[in-house]
Design a binder for these strands. Structure first.
Lengths: 348, 348
DNA sequence: TTGTAAGCGTTATCAG
DNA sequence: CTGATAACGCTTACAA
């Protein structure tokens, strides 16, 4: 291993000079260009690479970001990981990836381990909610960190999440523009916070556009739920009311699949007799029959925004600057496929 | 951060004593039990945790294993990662996971980075072959490492791979025991090394059991291949020969799906008229119609064996012992489902 | 402008 | 049995 001393000796300067040049320290601006070039050349030539442990020990700064994912096998995670990796590597941060395997004891353990090694933490949330105890651990120790994909209870942590409210707003606007006025809804379980945001989006567009929502056409999934069966069941109940509607907005794609099955088995055609909107754009949505119009999260943007925020926080904390927490919502995209069209006749 | 010095002061012993006790150094056996207990208690009580960078700097040993995967989104990788993680964490090694994204420049870059930080390297191979240049880099620098899932050219590196030869042997034995004697084969492209091993297994069982292989019933997929179409095409050609066979062994599951389609469209029933064997046991195999009998790799065992071998190599290299490379083949499991049964009539 | 020296927190080698 | 003490390789005041 070639050390900074050896480079210094070879250049006939002191180790500190080499260090300054290599790290482009403010003071290095006083070093004449010729010396700098010589140092750079020799270091390169000798194949010098700094020892990351010595650097970290001395500077308390490891150039490393911990990334915790709930389940590495989840394709949703994989996409986001790509985005994070690309952002971090651009700034030559090394991601330290840890698979939590949806196990809170692992979370606790690795949180501890990473805490002592990394400069910052990106925590990917999935549908599982965080144990608040674990989050507060993050706050007390002052480690720059950002939560991705879900808004935690505490506002003192930074987070980036998809703007579900805007998603449903876009969805409803799409249906409205197609000409739908009688629209049915299947809301998610009230305990799921996403589902509340989604509903807010619905209401805000409706009131802005002067669209009347018939409360009888609003169903809600029950709580411990299977969305597919739930969608089927609720749709049958809606149809049984005999109140005409020409479009149906489902809580998510699986729910939408259930809705479509119910509509079809009631003799209705999708989208001819009734349009159906999904949410999430899971892979199957594209292959379904009919291909499902849905709302897709912007994973890369979610990831890169998160990484950006974190790196900024790390930079700030390095300079002992106060880091205020940042919250950002990423607008999702409407993916228009075959399950939505202009209304022709009304569903029974 | 609480340091070893603070613990020492609190215990009224010297830092070296604390270090010895905590690390269970050979010399620590001379320290009286009471002192040890006191040190342990105080360290625990003060919440002492060693600084990993200081440890690594001093001991040249980071308790960290680099894990490189070609594509983190590949479910095949995810399974193996679980196995690795579980093995490593049992020995309190921390995996440093890196996603290569099937990009050889990334491989080169991260190989370098990891080289300077980790005690050993686990490299996961997928169908993409390694560039030999990269492998030789591994050999020259003496970093304990193991290749998972594929046998590299050089024998000086350790590897663990699935025993494809045994897999096809099991498959053929299964068919033989069911009573099949006229068996057709669709071999993989000759360039794929797996496919050669598979064929060796076929031949070895056949000669051991005295089973005659009709060379006219052996088809080979062409090289730049889509296995599904290839299986379909080759099966049609086999059927056209009008040589009766009661079972068909396909190169992999996708090929088998193609075969089944060809058989069915020729009016034959699977397995009634012709049994079909797959290979790999991809998830879809279980849901296919009929559910496919296949050969499944033993991911956890592959992973844990690899991790074991690596950790042993790390331990050895720590003591400056020579590390001889280890090669291990993991026998796969035969998964018997609906696509194979005893022969009743022969396929035309 | 550059060199010297003092650590960062640990571990290992000696003396005692 | 235990305590100084000297590294590990690097950064950064401070001195020159």
């Amino acid at each position: 291993m070639v050390t900074i001393r050896q480079v210094a000796k070879e250049c006939k300067v002191s180790p500190s000079t080499v260090s300054m040049v290599l790290n482009q320290t403010p003071l290095s601006s006083y070093i004449p260009e010729t010396t700098k070039q010589r140092v750079l050349q020799v270091a390169e030539g000798m194949g010098y690479q700094p020892n990351p442990f010595a650097q970290a020990l001395r500077s308390r700064y490891s150039h490393t970001i911990g990334v915790m994912v709930p389940d590495i096998a989840d394709p949703y995670c994989a996409q986001i990981l790509r985005g994070i990796e690309n952002s971090l590597s651009r700034s030559s941060y090394l991601p330290f990836l840890v698979d939590i395997q949806n196990d809170s004891s692992r979370f606790k353990k690795y949180l501890n381990v990473l805490m002592r090694r990394v400069d910052g933490l990106i925590i990917l949330a999935n549908s599982l909610s965080f144990e608040s105890e674990l989050l507060s651990a993050l706050e007390t120790r002052k480690m720059p960190s950002v939560i991705l994909g879900r808004e935690p209870e505490t506002d003192s942590l930074s987070w980036v999440a998809t703007d579900n409210e805007d998603g449903t707003r876009q969805a409803l606007e799409h249906l409205y523009r197609l000409g739908h006025r009688k629209i049915a809804f299947i809301r998610g379980p009230s305990l799921i916070v996403d589902s509340q945001h989604q509903w807010t989006g619905i209401c805000s567009f409706a009131s802005a556009a002067g669209l009347e929502l018939d409360p009888r056409l609003v169903a809600t999934l029950s709580d411990p739920f299977s969305s597919y069966e739930g969608g089927y069941e609720r749709t049958r109940q809606l149809l049984a009311l005999n109140i005409p509607f020409t479009a149906l907005v489902a809580f998510d794609d699986m729910t939408a699949f259930g809705c479509i099955r119910a509509l079809i088995s009631a003799g209705l055609r999708v989208p001819h007799d009734c349009s159906v909107m999904g949410f999430d754009d899971i892979p199957a949505a594209a292959f379904y029959n009919p291909a499902l119009t849905s709302v897709r999260e912007h994973m890369e943007e979610l990831a890169s925004t998160g990484a950006e925020i974190l790196m900024e926080a790390v930079r700030a904390s390095r300079k002992n600057q106060a880091v205020s927490s940042v919250h950002r919502k990423i607008k999702p995209d409407l993916i228009i496929r075959e399950s939505t069209a202009a209304p022709r006749s009304s569903a029974s």
